[in-house]
């Protein structure tokens, strides 16, 4: 299931839950976990590609959320983006420590298609429309590089292998297109 509908109702109060967690409220923390763990566990599994490791990492991610909740600043963005950042950092660190065989990730572009149903102003990710639009302005294969790096944790070297290009070419693609992506996103409301 997409989860977008239940997220819509639930995310209204993620910020309040996180505030309570910052005060050491264990019940709020359990509720926060119940609302967000399938999303964070899903993204960690996708990056580390191993269920057992993903469980260990997700455990660590929630303990970090518990410890760092006080440092969440609502004026700097959504709770979901904040928690996502913690989970991605931890998952990518783990992946770099113990790399796996690159998977066949032809679905980078297919994944991108799934941004469409996220164009929901009330979702946790209110910027989904802008991001989709701007990613669509990025030409392939640079667009897939960005999506595969974000969603699958591909390193420059893995991207180079996948696209049969030198690492320096990947760097150039990223450099040019990340600047274009920023310019586009800044022009979006």
């Amino acid at each position: 299931m997409s989860g977008s509908l239940s997220m819509k109702a639930g995310d209204v109060d993620l910020q309040a839950l996180l505030g309570a967690v910052a005060e050491g409220d264990g019940v709020a923390f359990k509720t926060l976990y119940g609302r967000t763990s399938s999303l964070l566990f899903g993204l960690v599994i996708r990056i580390v590609r191993d269920r057992g490791r993903a469980e260990d990492i997700t455990q660590d991610v929630y303990l970090r959320i518990w410890q760092k909740a006080r440092s969440f600043a609502p004026d700097q963005g959504t709770p979901m983006a904040w928690m996502t950042t913690i989970a991605r950092h931890r998952a990518i660190d783990a992946l770099r420590e113990k790399p796996l065989q690159p998977i066949d990730a032809d679905e980078g572009t297919r994944l991108l298609d799934r941004l469409t149903p996220l164009g929901d102003p009330q979702s946790a990710f209110a910027d989904a429309n802008a991001l989709r639009h701007c990613l669509e302005t990025i030409e392939e294969p640079a667009r897939s590089c960005i999506v595969l790096a974000y969603c699958d944790g591909f390193s420059r070297e893995e991207l180079a292998e996948k696209f049969a290009a030198p690492v320096n070419t990947i760097k150039t693609w990223l450099h040019r297109n990340l600047l274009a992506l920023r310019a586009c996103l800044e022009a979006e409301p």
Binding site: M1, G3, S4, M7, K30, Y33, S37, S38, L39, F41, G42, L43, I45, R46, E55, T58, Q59, Y62, L63, Q76, G77, T78, M80, A81, W82, T84, T85, A87, R88, L111, L112, R114, L115, L118, S123, A124, F125, D127, A128, A130, L131, R132, V147, Y150, C151, L185
Partner: peptide, 24 residues
């Protein structure tokens, strides 16, 4: 982090095993 975060919702959600909360 904020502007790229919508991509995280592209993943399938995967229910965490029940035991994970107990461990946390």
């Amino acid at each position: 982090e904020q502007r790229l975060a919508p991509m995280a919702a592209l993943n399938d959600r995967v229910p965490a095993p029940d035991a994970l909360w107990s461990r946390i």
